[in-house]
Amino acid sequence: MGRLTNWSVSRLLSMPSLAVVTLFGLAGCGIIEPEKAPPACPEIIVLKEAQEMTRFQGNGRDLTDVTFEASINNFVGGCKLDEETGRLHNQVVVRFELNQGPASDGGAQFNYFVAVATQDRKILSRESFSLVAPFEGNRTSVAIVDNIYPSITLGRGDTGEDYIIFIGFELSRSELYYNRTKL
């Protein structure tokens, strides 16, 4: 193919419809292959009632009885489809923020869950994770990031958009009640 001169480039640019038609035509014939689109990933939802946790010492519910407060304040996810097995491998990165309370013993231990569900909220799998956060020195707050890798075997014709990943703290009855009174 010959070299394009300034005249031929400017002439080509003055005929945009011809250039666009030619490029689309080449792409349609497979001469220019577009990159394969990434798979659709499941929606990630942090359950509102389980997004925060306030842990009290004993049966008291006064501010002085708080050992720590925690929240899920950020998350990000991605996925990759294994076309041979039909499994959608997800990665979810969850960020927790914890604040030490007056009744703290110097650390915080808590559990959270990740559940995979269908769009109609039928739970397919659920897994619990345990984390420990030390409040070292005179620190009264700490952030923790955790990576989790739920995978989903896709049904025939399904995509990641047909599923939801739920995240939340595992709460006791009294912690759940406390959260509901704050909403």
Rank of each mutant, 00 (worst) to 15 (best):
G168Y: 06
Y177D: 15
L12H: 00
N111H: 09
S10H: 09
P102G: 06
V9A: 06
L12S: 00
P134G: 09
T159Y: 03
A103G: 08
D162K: 07
K122R: 13
D105E: 13
A70W: 02
K80S: 09
L124C: 06
M53K: 11
F96P: 01
G86A: 09
Y177N: 14
L171G: 02
G2P: 13
V66W: 01
G101C: 04
Y177G: 13
R173D: 14
S141P: 06
G157V: 05
K48Y: 00
R55E: 12
E83W: 09
L171Q: 04
G101Q: 02
K48I: 01
E69I: 05
E127Q: 10
E69Q: 12
Q51S: 11
L131N: 06
G157W: 06
V93P: 00
N111D: 11
F96E: 02
E127T: 08
S141D: 10
K122F: 10
V21A: 09
G107S: 14
S14L: 15
Y149F: 15
P34V: 08
W7A: 12
K36T: 11
D162I: 00
D65K: 03
L23Y: 10
G58Y: 04
A117K: 04
E127S: 10
V21Q: 04
G86I: 06
L13H: 06
E97H: 15
N73P: 10
R121K: 15
I72P: 00
N179D: 08
F129M: 05
N6Y: 14
G101L: 03
Y163G: 10
H89F: 14
Y149E: 13
S14C: 13
V92Q: 04
S151P: 05
E84S: 15
S151Y: 06
P102S: 09
V66Y: 00
G60N: 09
S8C: 01
G58T: 05
M1L: 14
V92A: 05
A143T: 13
G107V: 01
G2W: 10
L18M: 13
R139S: 12
F113N: 03
E83Q: 10
N147P: 00
A103V: 03
V46Q: 04
S104P: 02
P150Y: 02
T22E: 11
A27N: 08
P134S: 10
G107T: 08
L183H: 05
Y163W: 07
S8M: 04
C79P: 03
I152A: 06
F129A: 05
Y149L: 11
F56W: 06
L171D: 01
Y149W: 13
R87L: 06
D120R: 08
T64D: 13
P34E: 02
E69T: 11
G58C: 07
S10F: 04
D105A: 14
G58N: 10
S125N: 10
T140K: 11
A37W: 10
T118M: 02
G78D: 09
Q109H: 10
